[in-house]
Amino acid sequence: MSETPDETATAGAAAEAGAAPTIGTAPASGAAATTPAPMKIDAKLGLDVFKLDKEPHIVIDHEICRTVCAKKVCLTVCPADLYELDDSGDVIVNWEGCLECGTCLICCEPQALSWKYPRGEYGVQYRTS
């Protein structure tokens, strides 16, 4: 999955939509050209205030991931993109950037996650959501 719909894709869609003939400059594509690339998810998390605990609040039972899990949905559902595979192919979670939404907990069918809220005062602290 590419991260951004690139300009050619956009132009293609516009052409398909039966857009105007080619006289003059289409302002729509001009605007698209100046659209900045989307922020990386790490950069977005970098805007948030986190108070880091020493202990992780999400612990993965790797045995379940290795043996029972048919589809590693944790890799795709997390809105902070915190799950990844380590060198040995095990699923790990970068819990430090957790937004505490619970999506991984609810979506992991084999229940491999021991998921708690961080201790009082730790974890993400939203200021303007």
């Binding site: 999955m1 991260e3 951004t4 719909p5 956009t10 516009a14 729509a28 594509s29 605007a31 698209a32 100046t34 659209t35 690339a37 989307p38 922020m39 998810i41 977005k44 998390l45 805007l47 948030d48 890799l75 795709t76 559902v77 997390c78 809105p79 902070a80 993109d81 937004l99 505490e100 939404c101 999506t103 993400v124 939203y126 200021r127 303007t128 959501s129």
Partner: peptide
């Protein structure tokens, strides 16, 4: 990936002008 939906919306030609010049100040999920 779930988080890609918002980036695609933000960069779509119809929506990009609505947020042009804006600065992201927080990212949250629930």
């Amino acid at each position: 990936e779930s988080w890609q939906l918002l980036d695609e919306l933000k960069t779509s030609p119809a929506v990009a002008p609505l947020i042009k010049g804006g600065e992201v100040i927080e990212y949250s999920a629930h």
